[in-house]
Design a protein around this nucleic acid. Structure first.
Lengths: 339, 339
DNA sequence: CCCGCAACAGAGAGCGCTCTCTGCGCGCTC
DNA sequence: GAGCGCGCAGAGAGCGCTCTCTGTTGCGGG
């Protein structure tokens, strides 16, 4: 492996000049640039990241933390459970699209146990990452607090559950809920219900809120709800409750997984979707096309959102004293077969 | 941020002794260990990774590369498409379970374009990662070759499409195909077909091979097949072909996505699954529980496999001159509703 | 009583890079 | 023609760590 020194020797210039050329610094005479470029090609030189990082005190690396509760790790698919949701892959894809042009790379870390959470902290303290992108699937996650306390640049996916001086991206969940309500009403549903997510998660609460508000605008004061956990089975269970107790003819499930469960539960009872009961989901995930009828759902642009998330972090790294900001995206209703 | 020097000062010892204690080296007097431990706690010292990496020439980081073809990036869900499959999340989860105990962290990278492929190479050349874990969804991927040529420790998920001196993990795809065939025959299917994956992918070919061999053992010489691309829609299309042209009453789809598509296509024609036509999938992915009937499928233990994959790489890093090895896992048939 | 050896602490070099600071030479002005 | 400033290359320090090599101490044996 050749070093700056080697290149300098071959080019017949000083180490400093080679460094200037490698980093594209201005104020280098053309003939030197050429000599160095040539020498780099001949030696196959690649700068050593550790050495550079040591002096610049930047790592050109960001930490991507997926945070979840203890239980989420031990699902039917074992330890990969938390990440098995396509959601995370889509987020990762979005992040990378912003990071790649800057040649910054994401390191993946799970933060489920306390041990893992403190590992996240020390990883950044080590100088191994310049900032943190946090995707939290957990209510009351202490990590955002810990990280901002440590003075680290952090960007969240989803609004934090209590106000914190950090940037985040989110979809306008209330507007999304309203979109679902308006659509069900426009379809002619007379008795609508909602399958909520875990209500300690702000996004889930907002979807409920937006749905209820819109229904109120349509003159419906009471909206029956049944709680779910964002899983397919929980959606089915909640749907059964709604069907037995409230004879609903329209349901808004707060994510696509639960919407799929809801459709299956309705069909199991011999009901037709959307004729007997219409179902609207949320996310527009890959599951939306895997069921029949295909899912009418509120799309959140996950890739765009996570790309923006990375962009916000990059911005913070460039200007650390900037105030945190939030990017809220407007959801869109995608009409398919289920409602 | 405090340094070794600071700790040494506080503890009243030399930098070297602090280093020895931090790294758990033997031959340090108990009172020194205590003084240093104490000083570390007081100063909140965390070793700087770049500095350590610079001298040890190890980064304690591995590169996880997801390789795919150009087209796979521009699916209906945009740039995250390739990663939107739960498969990758499950692989990531498995990898991390092996890596975490060793405090080695995965850096994620996509290798779809040539530019990205060469970035993978330079990343490792920079000394930023000690080895590569490659998950390739692409036939004829030049990356495995490039990496072994560069003399890097690499472990693959799936057998490479031409022999290469590197380690890999895989499921016994032929045995999996046979499992599906045996099950369909045992159920009493008289006319079975197969929906294959892209046949330039070794795993997809092996599933076909194993299926055909087993059918031959059951006295069936000819098995109609229809090609798919591992997507839900391609499974539906292939199923239609099989149904029209061969009036099959049993189908093996080479992955769960296509199996879901196959079930939907059959139901669209008014056929009952499994009574009119039985469907067996492959993977046991999250999709297997999202359809009705639930999917009978050949399970490959993805988390276990990817954990082993990371373990093999770690082994290679510890003993670089070791010969490459392969770990082949036996699949299991999971019987549910569809067959 | 002195020598030898083990056991362990400390000194110091150096990993590959960046960056400031110095110095040199050129062209300009007065 | 002397002085000044500017543009640009090189020298050298030092980022925080590891590791080898040297030095010191304390013990046992001759």
């Amino acid at each position: 492996m050749s070093t700056l020194e080697d290149v300098a020797l071959v080019a017949g210039v000083s180490r400093a000049s080679v460094s200037r050329v490698v980093n594209g610094k201005p104020g280098v005479a053309a003939h030197i640039v050429e000599a160095v470029t040539d020498a780099i090609a001949r030696t196959g030189y690649v700068p050593n990241r550790a050495a550079r990082s040591l002096v610049t005190r930047r790592s050109d690396t960001v930490l991507v933390v997926v945070s979840g509760s203890d239980t989420s790790r031990a699902g039917p698919w074992g330890p990969g459970e938390l990440l098995a949701d396509p959601f995370f892959g889509r987020v990762a894809g979005g992040l990378m699209s912003s990071l790649r042009p800057r040649d910054i790379h994401p390191v993946l870390m799970l933060a489920v146990t306390d041990d893992e959470r403190s590992r996240v902290l020390s990883y950044v303290r080590e100088g191994s990452a310049d900032g943190v992108l946090l995707v939290s699937a957990q209510a009351g996650d202490p990590l955002p607090q810990m990280l901002t306390d440590a003075g680290l640049p952090v960007v969240l996916f989803s609004r934090p559950d209590h106000p914190l001086p950090l940037s985040y991206v989110d979809v306008n969940n209330r507007a999304g809920g309203a979109l679902a309500a308006d659509h069900l009403v426009a379809r002619g549903c007379r008795s609508v219900g909602i399958v909520t997510g875990p209500l300690d998660i702000p996004g889930a609460e907002d979807r409920l809120l937006g749905f209820r508000e819109a229904m109120a605008r349509h003159g419906v004061a009471y909206v029956p709800s049944a709680p779910g956990t964002f899983s397919v089975e929980s959606g089915a269970t909640a749907m059964e409750a709604l069907l037995t107790q409230h004879r609903v003819d329209g349901v808004f499930a707060s994510n696509d997984n639960m919407a799929v469960g809801a459709i299956l539960a309705a069909q199991e009872r011999g009901l037709s979707v959307p004729d007997d009961v219409a179902v609207v989901g949320f996310d527009d995930s890959t599951a939306a096309l895997m069921c029949r009828p295909t899912l009418t759902t509120v799309r959140q642009p996950i890739e765009t959102m996570s790309a923006e998330m990375a962009r916000l972090l990059l911005e913070r790294l460039d200007a650390p004293d900037q105030r945190p900001s939030a990017a809220i995206f407007e959801p869109v209703l995608v009409e398919r077969g289920s409602a």
